[in-house]
Design a protein around this nucleic acid. Structure first.
Length: 584
RNA sequence: GCACCCGUAGCUCAGCUGGAUAGAGCGUUUCCCUCCGAAGGAAAAGGCCGUUGGUUCGACUCCAAUCGGGUGCGCCA
């Protein structure tokens, strides 16, 4: 359960509760706590409390109730220090903050990190988040990156909110795509494998294989090809023969590629499930339930008839005796709960699989699996190119490693090479890498998961406006201030009075609430837009409020405000897996 | 045919469990580095929130219908 952790709302709640009760309302703390909303304009106050629901209960005019409440509050002694005034405006009670007092409350907590350690929730179910299901023998592209960034961000968000999270991945290392790739490798390839990035090279062979097979459809060669592929699949099935050996070797190349990508992205999995490992057990499980009568035979194949539930027919065992993706997912779900001791299971897979997961979860339910209700598919829309969908079969993909190289190069030539001589080559390189991480991860998480992303390379290389580098730049700017400005006396927070200071102070304490919301809604973009607001507020403050030249006391307060903004940005970006450079 | 997702400014997107005058970024047009980092800031222009009904004191938000786009629906994963 999510807790009421926002100190500002809590203090206001405590203040309002007695007065509302005196007025006859049957209210609980949480109702009030959840009743605060932002005002349309800071001139009207900084936080609003709408009286509609209480007026309805008391059968009063909301505006009149707001007036009575406001009157009662004037005589109340418990007014929080950060409230400058509470004013009834129509049906609302609007609170205007005193920026200095709010700063006094918030800045020390942010500076000593205690703000980020508040308990946001308790008793949350042990949850497995499965994400990143790349195929071996194919190249990884920007589409995979969306899944990776989304999954990683959700894991970090959940952990921040006290969830016990098990991160898992389920790569596809068996199936016809593998056979096609190996077939081409052995029978048609003339190139020698490169020394580095073999996984990417192998992925390109897959595309060549696919195209060759397509081209030869309808020719006498088609039959030959099919027989060769069947033989390869048979060897993989038996786990013996030259193709099995080749599979072992090339599979590792793909795994190396995945691991390189994961290392670059700072992603770590607690559990790796392999399709090849659940394959045979999954078929056995399906056979058992066929005997129990849950799955039926039809046209030589076996599956679950889900027509009563509007889910059609879910095929589980092909007429050749092999299982399918759904078969594996049924067995995998069993393993997750029974072997890993989880209480909730989240699957991050693109929305094309929605139907698949509905079928799988229904089958689990029909099998009497008590955790069927604890399985959730988080569907996200995929990444498209300006000229349409990406497909490794067609080969029109933006390869991940190429994208990263491209971006790093661009960052160096456009920005960082100007520091040559001043910074070491390593510093330039690692900063460029971090900025590229920022650009890609922010770009992938800033869009609502349910909306598609059109990947336009030139747009992504711009790095201005609402982007990861904008936030990183803001952070680096503040670090630079920190290096240059000395603090000599105690900060006098009450000197913080400008609208820019107010706006920034008002935003910072919302961090935990925003993170909780992003987590609950599985939408990291809630966090990205908040961080962007903070950075924008800071940059506005920066241009309007001189720090170094401010009188002592105010100088310290402003610097601490800036440093607090930097802390929030850093913590927030960390939840998106984005590093912050000290300079850039 | 059925199901799911999306439809807000020229483009890309925000808009919290319904609430006060719908907001950003990019692009366009102007300004701002004798001052802590211009990957920055300030300002202007740009909207019948796909359409039509309904629920409500109140709808971009909820419901229904409809149009447009996308994706799925038995031997791929």
């Amino acid at each position: 359960m999510m807790l009421m952790h926002d100190q500002i709302r809590l203090e206001l709640t405590t203040w309002l509760l007695p007065s509302l009760k005196e007025l006859g309302a049957q209210v609980e703390e949480r109702q009030i706590y959840n009743g605060f909303a932002s005002t349309p304009d800071s001139k009207m106050g900084h936080l609003a409390f709408a009286l509609f629901p209480f007026a309805k209960e008391l059968k009063l005019n909301p505006a009149a109730l707001a007036k009575s409440l406001s009157d009662k509050l004037q005589s109340s002694q418990a007014k929080p220090a950060f409230v400058e005034k509470a004013q009834n405006v129509g049906p609302y009670l609007n609170f205007t903050y005193s920026p200095g007092h709010l700063a006094q409350l918030i800045i020390p907590q942010v500076m000593d990190q205690s703000f980020f350690k508040r308990k946001i929730s308790q008793d949350m179910p042990r949850t497995m988040i499965e994400y990143s299901q790349p195929n071996t023998h194919k190249e990884m592209h920007v589409g995979h990156m969306r899944n990776l960034c989304l999954g990683d961000a959700l894991i970090r968000l959940h952990r921040y909110c006290n969830f016990d999270i098990v991160a898992s991945t389920f790569p596809g290392d068996v199936g016809t795509h593998v056979a096609k790739c190996l077939w081409y490798f052995k029978n048609h390839n003339t190139e020698t494998p490169p020394k580095e990035r073999k996984g990417a090279w192998l992925g390109r062979l897959y595309t060549l294989a696919h195209n060759k097979l397509e081209d030869e459809k309808g020719t006498p060669q088609e039959d030959v090809n099919r027989k060769e592929l069947t033989e390869i699949l048979a060897q993989l099935e038996k786990k013996a023969g030259p193709f099995f050996d080749l599979w072992l070797e090339t599979r590792q190349w793909s795994i190396d590629l995945m691991k390189e990508v994961y290392a670059w992205a700072g992603v770590e999995f607690d559990v790796w499930f392999w399709e090849s490992e659940v394959d045979s057990d999954s078929v056995k499980l399906a056979r058992e339930w066929q005997k129990k009568g849950l799955f039926i035979e039809d046209q030589g194949a076996v599956g679950a008839d889900l027509k009563d539930y509007g889910l059609g027919f879910c095929l589980l065992i092909k007429s050749d005796g092999n299982g399918l993706y759904a078969t594996k997912d049924v067995e995998l779900a069993r393993r997750k709960f029974q072997e890993k001791g989880i209480e909730k299971s989240l699957y991050i897979v693109d929305l094309r699989q929605s139907h698949h997961f509905k079928q799988v979860f229904k089958i689990l339910e029909l099998m009497g699996f008590k955790h069927a209700k604890d399985c959730f598919h988080l569907a996200y829309d995929f990444v498209e190119l300006p000229d349409g969908a990406m497909s490794s079969r067609k080969g029109n993909i933006v390869a991940l490693q190429a994208l990263i190289d491209n971006m790093v190069e661009k960052i160096k030539t456009d920005y960082l090479n100007r520091y040559q001589g001043e910074w070491s080559t390593d510093e330039i390189e690692s900063t460029a890498q971090d900025v590229a991480r920022g650009a890609i991860k922010y770009g992938m998480t800033r869009i609502d998961p349910l909306k598609k992303i059109v990947f336009d390379m030139t747009e992504w290389l711009k790095l201005d406006g609402e982007s990861g580098p904008y936030l990183q730049y803001t952070y680096a700017r503040i670090q630079s201030m920190k290096r240059k400005i000395q603090m000599s006396v105690q900060a006098d927070y009450l000197t913080l009075t400008t609208p820019q200071e107010m706006e920034l102070i008002r935003l910072l304490p919302q961090f935990n609430t925003v993170v909780a919301q992003a987590c609950e809604q599985y939408r990291p973009n809630v966090l990205t837009s908040f961080l962007f607001d903070v950075a924008r507020a800071f940059n506005s403050f920066y241009s309007e409020c001189p720090v170094a030249s401010a009188p002592s006391g105010q100088k310290e307060a402003r610097l601490e405000l800036a440093l607090s903004a930097a802390q929030v940005i850093k913590e927030g970006l960390a939840l998106l897996g984005i590093p912050v450079p000290q300079k850039m």
